[in-house]
């Protein structure tokens, strides 16, 4: 039936795998990791998955994944689906485009780009604190460094999982 509709079964399986991955990362980020803090900091792992998709799948698919990833991220932060929904979509599109044009696609380069993306995520989160609440800049920088450092640990396992899923529809 799927062949009749022109749908590749392996592609469907791949989409389902990405959906499961996103769901598992959401569970980990919102329900498990809040109880495993390092220096009072929790990791941010959903943006890492968006960067992985940008590397392996390109800008369009990373952008679509970014929409859903951003919604889940906003849910995990107890906020409406606006800030990260938009940001992750843009991040997926931009990173996907850059990986296809100017950036190297090796793992070290990917790691560096993910670190930059995580810093930008933290800046987006702390924007209101700095410009509206007048929070201490040094304290905010400390928070950004701790969050990025803890989150970057999960780059390698998520990279491997997305790499494996990416090969599902390839012979």
């Amino acid at each position: 039936m799927l062949k009749y509709l022109g749908v590749n079964f392996r592609s469907v399986l791949k989409v389902a795998a990405y959906a499961c991955l996103l769901f598992v990362l959401y569970i980990l980020q919102s329900m498990i990791f809040p109880y495993f803090k390092i220096l009072g900091t929790k990791p941010l792992i959903i943006p890492v998955a968006v960067m992985c998709l940008a590397l392996f799948e390109g800008p369009v698919k990373a952008g679509i994944f970014g929409v859903f990833a951003g919604i889940f991220c906003d849910f995990s932060f107890n906020q409406p689906a606006i800030q990260f929904t938009v940001f992750m979509t843009v991040m997926g599109l931009a990173a996907g485009y850059l990986f296809q044009t100017v950036l190297a696609t090796g793992f070290p380069s990917f790691c560096a780009c993910t670190a930059v993306a995580l810093v930008i995520c933290a800046l987006v989160q702390s924007f209101g604190l700095v410009f509206y609440s007048g929070a201490d800049i040094l304290a905010v920088l400390k928070g950004i460094i701790l969050q990025t450092g803890y989150s970057i640990i999960f780059t390698f396992p998520i990279y491997l999982i997305v790499k494996w899923i990416n090969r599902m529809d390839k012979d």
Partner: peptide
């Protein structure tokens, strides 16, 4: 039932 995953706020549900 859950705590926020954010490092920039302190909220729970």
């Amino acid at each position: 039932i859950s705590w926020t995953a954010s490092n920039w706020s302190s909220t729970f549900t």
